[in-house]
Design a protein around this nucleic acid. Sequence first.
DNA 1: TGTACATCAGTGAACGCGCGTTCACTGATGTAC
DNA 2: TGTACATCAGTGAACGCGCGTTCACTGATGTAC
Lengths: 211, 211
Amino acid sequence: MGRRHLAEHGASGLSLRAVAREVGMVSSAVYRYFPSRDDLLTALIIDAYDAVGECAENADESARDRGVAARWLNVCEAVRAWALANAHEYALIYGSPVPGYAAPEATIGPASRVPVVLLRLLADGVAGGEVVAGETAAMSRAVRSDFAQLRRTAAPSVPDAALSRAFAVWAQVLGTINLEMFGHLHNVIHDYDAFFTLQMRRACEFLAQGA
Amino acid sequence: MGRRHLAEHGASGLSLRAVAREVGMVSSAVYRYFPSRDDLLTALIIDAYDAVGECAENADESARDRGVAARWLNVCEAVRAWALANAHEYALIYGSPVPGYAAPEATIGPASRVPVVLLRLLADGVAGGEVVAGETAAMSRAVRSDFAQLRRTAAPSVPDAALSRAFAVWAQVLGTINLEMFGHLHNVIHDYDAFFTLQMRRACEFLAQGA
DNA sequence: TGTACATCAGTGAACGCGCGTTCACTGATGTAC
DNA sequence: TGTACATCAGTGAACGCGCGTTCACTGATGTAC
């Protein structure tokens, strides 16, 4: 059983005992694999990030023959689909932080898998001429330097305006998923699938064309 | 003391006992005011929605002499400022739902105060010619009917395309605040204030001008 | 103005529960000779 | 091939803690006569 199984089936409850229950273990047996609850939580978080990261990578890969906007859209849809299918894991990584728990450095790598996919795609789009720069808004030195850092590490040659749009779309993705999953669209929107697709299609076109 | 004080000072912990502690009461005294933990939670949620709603209304009011985009921006900034100043309340209403708690109907009204402000503003902008329609994307019958319903109740004469952009911006607002508050921008963005303003300025211009 | 009583806000002890963590243990599986 | 021992995965009881909830209570404040 062990770690693998824990990671696969756990996380529907945040407590160590709940995870143990779910895999049919007694709570103390978990300590054979994780020295404490926080380490278990860290493992679950990492596994969740890896799972959604892999989904995003696959979605990107499977739309290889299409344009950048369509590929972004595909990744966004994949992230939402994963979120819907794994509500607890989604809340664990993109919802409110668990009180009293501070994520260690080890989560940083897995956490950036989805953003890395999106930024690489964006960079490809810029290189291929599919993504236009658009007007660059006035921005503070601090933000400009953060964008420059991002350009150096994950999004070569992507102009500030396009990076800014990428953040906007990514925030919109998570914001829309949160609105939907946490009940804020209840009785307002009825066909969540169609709504999300509509919103994302426009967002991804805007991302590429700056309009 | 009582309800008022509870509502003002509570919510830094989600538990009834934590709330009681915070107002200097013994836990059983809370039952003088609320029949159960869930009712306490409901009251806290309503107070939080009302608080952020009032902030949004004030922000809108205080920018009365400016254009629609500037007023939206002002409201968005106010929501973020409230979120930063009231992190627990923010997580309570816009973060992951509390396990085992289902929000009753009584929260719907307060929950819609901010959206109502934004939609009214949008409708004013449309009426005054400040908000353009923009191209209407193809959308499913279900979404079209939801938008029509929204138009009837809160956003008279606002075209589908503008409503769609409003959802986009609102999702982006919450998404960006979540990214910031839940640690996803850690070591990526350093000047959160400047970053938020930059993003929102562009978003609000896009909202009004559809480009 | 003074006494008797009701109302009310809050106390404090107790309950059963799920939590994280520990510890001594069991019993199956693998390895050495 | 058979026995002796080490390793390992998991058990089960116990701990102290914070939780939501109950209940009988105290003591201050208001009201009636």
